[in-house]
């Protein structure tokens, strides 16, 4: 049984530099993969490739058993939704209008939004607790609220895979916690398959079921989240010493160690 996302010996070049050197992994339906790694390891390149925005130079990416290049953009959008890094892009639409834009791949060219569209948009806003500011302009929201709105818009797309680029970057601790809880809930109770690129190794280990660590365009670690938070693995991936704290209450937290 192949994975919902199957990446085989993926090679991607940027100009004449090879960024990914033959990466192979799979994400099962209902999985939650956190992709981590130092700057320049190829995380974003991998995400862009899975989104089908840059064709692989070698190897294949298959969604539900079919190579991504054989899908139309509309078909990809029905399987896969994307939450970009919060980059301050100015969106002048109201929250509700913006979430409705997520229905693009499901709507006819001239059809006004029907009852289903409205219901799905409403559900997506309820799930992300964004309904209370449905009428406000997206550009007027705080970073944490915006992130939730972008997730709501991705949910309105009703794809079974959710891809996120640094979902907690630039968020304060409370919004980081809320976003992490939302993603975990979407995965565990709604059965959404999630792939998340992040710099936050603790978030990766606590949210993800699996962690994929890239280093210099190769896989340095791929395994269950619990196995990722160990000093040896972390040091191998990031090339700095780590300490892993195991409080009596349970869980594990990694912190940068002293330089030796």
């Amino acid at each position: 049984m192949p994975g919902l996302i199957q990446v085989e010996r993926l090679v991607v070049r940027r100009g004449d530099r090879e960024v990914l050197h033959g990466v192979t992994f799979a994400v099962e339906r209902g999985g939650f993969l956190a992709v981590v790694g130092p700057n320049g390891a190829g995380k974003t390149t991998l995400l862009v490739a899975i989104l089908g925005l840059a064709p692989p130079d070698a190897g294949t990416i298959a969604l539900a058993g079919r190579p991504i290049q054989r899908y139309s953009r509309r078909e990809v959008a029905r399987r896969l939704s994307y939450v970009p890094q919060s980059d301050g892009r100015a969106v002048s639409f109201s929250v509700e209008e913006f979430v409705l834009l997520g229905r693009y791949a499901h709507r006819g060219r001239f059809a006004p939004p029907d009852r289903d569209d409205r219901r799905i948009v409403r559900d997506a806003m309820d799930l992300t607790a964004t309904g209370t500011f449905a009428e406000r302009a997206v550009s007027s929201l705080s970073g944490g609220e915006r992130q939730k709105v972008f997730i709501a818009a991705a949910l309105a797309q009703q794809a079974d895979i959710l891809l996120l680029d640094e979902p907690t970057a630039f968020l304060d601790p409370r919004h980081q916690r809320d976003t992490a809880a939302l993603l975990r809930d979407l995965n565990r109770t709604r059965g959404l398959t999630v792939v998340m690129v992040t710099h936050d190794f603790n978030l990766a280990a606590h949210c993800g079921r699996d962690v994929l660590a890239l280093r210099d365009g190769r896989i340095a670690f791929h395994g269950p989240a619990e196995a990722f938070l160990t000093p040896d693995v972390l040091e191998d991936v990031y090339n700095v010493p780590f300490e892993v704290l195991r409080p009596p209450a349970g869980g594990a937290w990694a912190a940068l160690g002293e330089n030796r």
Binding site: L51, L53, R73, R74, R78, R89, L101, G102, Y104, Q157
Partner: peptide
């Protein structure tokens, strides 16, 4: 006029428009 919805999404960003299903 036929491409109004695509223009809406292009304003938000080409990458996002593509992942929403627009053949950018």
């Amino acid at each position: 006029s036929v491409l109004g919805r695509e223009l809406d999404l292009l304003v938000v960003g080409e990458d996002l428009a593509a992942t929403r299903g627009v053949s950018v």
